[in-house]
């Protein structure tokens, strides 16, 4: 019998903590209890240090965001581009397929056994000043954004951005330091922003996205007997991407309900908005293509095209 020690840097009730624990629970069931799971009461490391904590065996299983350690993971950015898709299941499953086919061989997750890569739901524009229907409406509104591609997006459209860690969002908004955030719907509830935001602009395909991976310590993986490895392999990759994606889509949906009850006005960006936006952010994709090719990914532009095509295919 092997006990996997799990750590999560988001709160216990957060969908990622639940999804990870439940995934491990499914593994436990499938292996008739030969694999057990033990979720630590407190995270062993903050989010950016979590991949290292897994690599060094501080914990056996955890997840993190590729963009939290800039410079380390280039490939993940492919899944962070604007307008990829409207559901976490679709983007996650397609991203995992592309990862398996093109990205895994570049071995960016050294010393870790990748269970799956995945994304969150579509990125949405929130603020408490005015309804944003055109790009020009964003003028004079201060947004909190994270680092990575979303930062490049903000720069490209000339938005007034404050780069601060996500857990500071509540403090930033409640104190009026910023007027809005770019987040997936889920985060509005998990960071308790539902009473603070007044306007929501959904962008078809999502304003941006975030690339995650669920990883296991390499040595722990090797300790697991072949038969159980086979079982886990079946529950990894696309299966796990879909598993986690569902949690995300459900939580996004619940958050939209909460927002509705809190009186958040919601609109959907029109074709002109999307076209204007695309024109300004085209350079971001080109920049990634160049960067990825520099790191050894042949024909990165085609990979990005393939990801978009794949997302459209996923049911």
């Amino acid at each position: 019998q092997i006990t996997l020690t799990l750590s999560s840097w988001v709160p216990p009730a957060h969908l990622l903590t639940r999804a990870q624990s439940d995934w491990c629970g499914e593994v436990s069931k499938a292996t008739s209890g030969r694999i057990q799971c033990n979720l630590l009461p407190k995270p062993v490391a903050p989010a950016p240090a979590t991949f290292d904590a897994v690599r060094d065996g501080l914990v056996d299983l955890s997840f993190s965001v590729h963009g939290y350690t800039p410079g380390r993971f280039t490939m993940g950015k492919v899944a962070e581009m604007p307008f990829l898709g409207d559901s976490a299941v679709a983007t996650s499953v397609a991203y995992q397929r592309i990862y398996e086919k093109h990205l895994a061989k570049l071995d960016e997750h050294k010393g870790m056994h990748v269970i799956t890569v995945f994304t969150h739901g579509p990125g949405v524009i929130f603020n408490n000043k005015k309804a944003i229907a055109t790009l020009a409406d964003m003028d004079g509104i201060k947004f909190r954004v994270g680092g990575g591609v979303v930062n490049d997006v903000g720069k490209a459209i000339g938005a007034n951005m404050t780069l601060k860690p996500a857990p500071q969002s509540y403090e930033l908004m409640s104190s009026g330091v910023v007027d809005g955030v770019w987040f997936p719907d889920e985060s509005i509830v998990s960071f308790k922003l539902d009473k603070l935001v007044k306007y929501r602009t959904a962008v078809p395909g999502g304003l941006y996205n975030t690339s995650f991976a669920l990883v296991m310590n390499e040595a722990t993986w090797k300790k697991i007997p072949k038969a159980d490895q086979d079982i886990i392999n079946k529950m990894s990759g696309e299966w796990a991407a879909r598993f986690i994606g569902k949690y995300w889509d459900e939580t996004d949906e619940k958050s939209r309900q909460v927002q509705k009850e809190a009186g958040v006005q919601s609109i959907t960006a029109d074709a002109k908005f999307v076209a204007d936006f695309k024109a300004k952010t085209a350079g971001i994709e080109d920049a990634w293509v160049k960067e990825a090719e520099g790191k050894g990914l042949a024909n990165a532009a085609a990979v990005l095209q393939e990801l978009r095509a794949e997302i459209a295919k996923v049911k």
Partner: peptide
Amino acid sequence: QRTAEYGDTTSALEIKI
């Protein structure tokens, strides 16, 4: 050493850590 190997940088200014 490992950070150097990873090539970790800061996010906006891309300063080597």
